[in-house]
Design a protein around this nucleic acid. Structure first.
Lengths: 109, 109
DNA sequence: GAATCAAGTTTCCAATTGGGTACTACGTTA
DNA sequence: TAACGTAGTACCCAATTGGAAACTTGATTC
């Protein structure tokens, strides 16, 4: 607990997973790459996610400054989610993942 | 269930997560990038993982052909885990993750 | 005056994940 | 003959995750 090198020893892959790990975050961010989305639009495009999960994940992504949440004061409510500049730094990871997933699906069923 | 386009519609990021998602798999694979490792060696290098979890994750990675498990018939037992050629195709994703994690740690605490 | 809409929140319950501990195999070393 | 070491398994229990459904808000439409 007293060394200078604690941070140096942390695995960078673990660091990444601590921010965008879990079942949903990378998928949500990938949806936002193609542009700003509203809440229901996101939910419809991620078929298995519940409102609760989507809300939770969006809150955490916002807290970590990866996305920006914009509330329009109108009824019915309108809330938009946008990748932040910082969120966009995650683009290379998402592209690598998308590329691998695409090829993997070709290879396997 | 009868369309031609089911697979086309699957999100490639989701495909990737279905294979290497979860809390441990990417970390384990990243350890193997630097070379073949034995079971206990892996466990020691991933401080929070239990034997049970490590066993489970290694079995699944082996089932999906990302790693190769080699058992030496000797006592005490010796089992080695190695990235397969196919597992190595995941390298770009891991590198992108490691790079992002490294920069993210600089930026944040 | 009832229904509708978007974007949630709340509550409760089920399933999955994960941890602790003990146990195993068996040849070698003390 | 007792202990050691590696690579696990087996079993049980606790914690966390995740899902379903009902409820909320307030202006607008039927």
């Amino acid at each position: 607990m007293s060394g200078l090198d604690e941070n140096v020893l942390v695995c960078p892959v673990e660091t990444t997973l601590s921010v965008v790990g879990g079942k949903w975050k990378a998928i949500i961010l990938w949806r936002l790459v193609s542009g700003t989305k509203r809440f229901n639009e996101l939910q419809r495009s991620i078929s298995q996610i519940t409102r609760k999960m989507l809300t939770e994940q969006l809150r955490e992504l916002e807290r970590d400054n990866l996305i920006i949440r914009t509330v329009y004061q109108q009824v019915p409510p309108k809330v938009e989610y946008t990748l932040s500049d910082y969120g966009r730094t995650f683009l290379p990871v998402m592209q690598a993942m998308a590329q691998w997933g695409f090829v993997h699906r070709e290879r396997n069923g």
